[in-house]
Amino acid sequence: MADTHIDRDALSVLREVMEEAYPELLDTFLADSESRLVELRKAVDAKALSEVAHSFKGSASNMGALRLAELCQELESEAKVKSPSEIARLVADITGEFAEVRPVYEGERQHALTH
């Protein structure tokens, strides 16, 4: 997978810093991401979209999910000015990007649990 999606160095640092708590961190990120995607799909106003996108951006950024964080940043900053169809497309892009990177985090988790 291209480095534009995930900062591998950030993951290495997290792996070293978190040690045996690393798999739990990955679990939390995956679960939180799933619930934030649901919240994004259900959000009806710009304020709610911005807030969910902001928290999602923070966790994606912390976990080295570069493109996911960028897409969340775009939604956070432009939720008030985008049309409903543009917002729907951005939420779809965020959903697609998470689907793209999710196997990497699941693989990291498996690797951490078996080593």
Rank of each mutant, 00 (worst) to 15 (best):
D3C: 12
I6R: 01
I6P: 08
D9H: 15
D9P: 05
A10E: 11
A10W: 02
A10R: 15
L11C: 11
R15L: 09
R15S: 10
M18A: 15
E19L: 13
A21I: 06
P23M: 03
E24C: 06
E24V: 13
L26G: 01
L30V: 15
L30M: 10
A31M: 09
A31L: 13
S33R: 03
S33E: 04
S33A: 15
S35Y: 04
R36V: 05
L37A: 09
L37E: 10
L40H: 06
L40V: 07
R41P: 03
V44Q: 14
D45R: 09
A46R: 07
A46G: 06
S50T: 12
S50I: 03
S50E: 08
A53N: 05
H54P: 07
S55Q: 10
S61G: 15
N62R: 05
N62W: 01
N62M: 06
M63S: 02
A65M: 05
L68E: 04
L68F: 09
L68Y: 04
E70N: 11
Q73D: 14
Q73F: 10
Q73W: 08
E78D: 13
E78Q: 15
A79Y: 11
A79V: 06
K80D: 13
V81P: 03
S83P: 01
P84E: 03
E86R: 08
I87P: 07
I87M: 05
R89Y: 00
L90N: 04
V91S: 03
A92G: 12
A92E: 13
A92P: 07
D93N: 12
G96D: 07
E97T: 11
E100G: 08
R102A: 15
P103R: 00
V104H: 12
E106I: 08
R109W: 00
R109I: 04
R109F: 00
L113Q: 10
